[in-house]
C-alpha cells in the first residue's frame, strides 16, 4: 500500500519515480528471508481469519442455519436500526461504557503497579513465591469466584458482613444493591486477574539492564527516581501497546462474569450489551441480531484503536503498527 503511494506520488524535488521502484525491488530482495518467514503467518491469517470474514454479512441478513448464507434474505440495516431504537439502548450503552471506563481506570493500572512493587523485591525466592501465588486466581472460574464472594458478602451469615455487623452494627447488601454493582465487578476482576496481568510486565522488566540501577545508585538517585527514569521507561511501550489493544474490545464486558452477578435489583446498572444479546437469543437464536451488535462493538473498537494509535505515534511512540 505504502509503496504504491510512493510510486505514484513522484513529487518534484524527490528522486525520480523509477529510482524509487528500484529501491523497492532492492529492499524486497534484500529482505527475501524475512518475507519467507512471514509467509506461513500470512497464509494462516488469510485462511483462518480472512476467508471466514464473509460471515460478517450475517448482520445484514435474516440468517437461519438451514437456509445458510446463500439462501437467507438480505435485510440491509434492519438489525442495526432495531438495535439502536431499542428502548433500553441508552441504558445499555451507558452501563457498558461506564463499566469499560472503570475497567480502564481502576483495573488496567493494577497489574502495572503490582509489577513495579515486585520489581523492587531483591530476593528472587520471595519474588517467585509471591508471583506464583498471585497468578493462581486466573485459573479459578467465574462461577467459583462469584460463589466465594457470596460466602463472604451475603447478608445471611456472610463472613465479612458479620464482621461488619460486629464493628458498625449494620450490614451492607453488597451483592444486591445497584450502587455496589460496579465496585463488586471491578473488585472481582482485580482479584482474579491482577497477578496474571503482571506476567507480561515482568517479562518486559526482565530486559532491564541491572547496571543502570547500579549506576543510578552511585549517582545517588532515590528509588522513586530510579523507578521513574529506569523502570517505567522500560515498560512504557508495552503499557501503551496493551492499552491500545484493550481499547479494541472496549465494549466487551465479560459475559459470564456479569451474567452471574446480575440480580433483579441491580439490573438497571448491570445489564450490558453482552448480557442483553444473550437474553435476546434465549428464545430464538438471533444470529443476525447478535452479529449486528457484535459488528457495532467492533466498529467502536476499531475507531478507538486507530485513534489511540494515531495519538501514540504523534507523541513519538511506536504504537501497534
Amino acid at each position: 500500500m505504502k509503496q504504491n503511494v510512493s510510486i505514484s506520488a513522484g513529487l518534484p524535488g524527490t528522486k525520480a519515480p523509477r529510482g524509487k521502484a528500484d529501491t523497492l525491488l532492492r529492499d524486497i530482495i534484500r529482505d527475501k528471508w524475512l518475507y519467507l518467514m512471514l509467509l506461513p503467518g500470512i497464509i494462516y491469517f488469510i485462511i483462518f481469519k480472512y476467508v471466514p470474514m464473509y460471515g460478517v454479512s450475517m448482520a445484514f441478513m435474516d440468517y437461519k442455519p438451514y437456509t445458510g448464507f446463500l439462501g437467507s434474505p438480505w435485510v440491509g440495516f434492519k438489525h442495526f436500526e432495531r438495535f439502536f431504537s431499542e428502548p433500553q439502548f441508552g441504558m445499555l450503552f451507558r452501563n457498558t461504557v461506564i463499566l469499560a471506563v472503570y475497567n480502564l481506570v481502576f483495573f488496567f493500572p493494577m497489574p502495572i503497579i503490582l509489577s513495579l512493587m515486585l520489581n523492587e523485591v531483591r530476593r528472587a525466592k520471595f519474588k517467585n513465591f509471591v508471583q506464583t501465588l498471585i497468578y493462581i486466581p486466573h485459573f479459578v472460574s467465574w462461577v467459583v469466584v462469584v460463589g466465594i464472594f457470596y460466602i463472604l458478602l451475603t447478608t445471611e451469615n456472610g463472613i465479612l458482613n458479620e464482621l461488619l455487623y460486629q464493628i458498625t452494627g449494620r450490614k451492607i447488601a453488597f451483592l444486591l444493591e445497584a450502587e455496589w454493582f460496579r465496585t463488586m465487578i471491578i473488585t472481582q476482576s482485580i482479584w482474579k486477574e491482577i497477578g496474571w496481568g503482571t506476567v507480561i510486565f515482568l517479562a518486559a522488566l526482565a530486559g532491564v539492564d541491572l547496571q543502570q540501577y547500579e549506576a543510578a545508585r552511585i549517582d545517588g538517585a532515590s528509588r522513586w527516581r530510579q523507578l521513574w527514569h529506569i523502570t517505567l521507561p522500560a515498560i512504557r511501550s508495552t503499557i501503551i501497546i496493551l492499552f491500545i489493544l484493550r481499547l479494541g474490545n472496549f465494549l466487551d464486558s465479560g459475559f459470564e462474569h456479569i451474567f452471574l452477578m446480575i440480580t433483579p435489583t441491580n439490573r438497571e446498572v448491570g445489564e450490558v450489551f453482552d448480557t442483553y444479546v444473550y437474553t435476546k437469543g434465549m428464545t430464538q437464536g438471533q444470529y443476525s441480531y447478535s452479529s449486528a451488535v457484535g459488528l457495532f462493538k467492533s466498529a467502536v473498537g476499531l475507531v478507538l484503536v486507530l485513534g489511540s494509535n494515531w495519538l501514540a505515534k504523534k507523541f513519538g511512540e511506536e504504537g501497534v503498527y
Binding site: K2, G55, S291, V305, V320, Y321
Partner: peptide, 30 residues
C-alpha cells in the same frame, strides 16, 4: 520480520493482523 522497521509492507500487514482482532467471521464460517 514485522519488528524490522525497514521491511516494506510491514504497516499494511500489521494493520491487517490488528483488524482480525476486531472483526471475525463468526462461528459458522470458521
Amino acid at each position: 520480520p514485522l519488528a524490522k522497521a525497514t521491511l516494506r509492507g510491514r504497516q499494511f500487514i500489521l494493520l491487517a493482523v490488528l483488524f482480525t482482532m476486531l472483526f471475525g467471521g463468526g462461528m459458522i464460517p470458521t
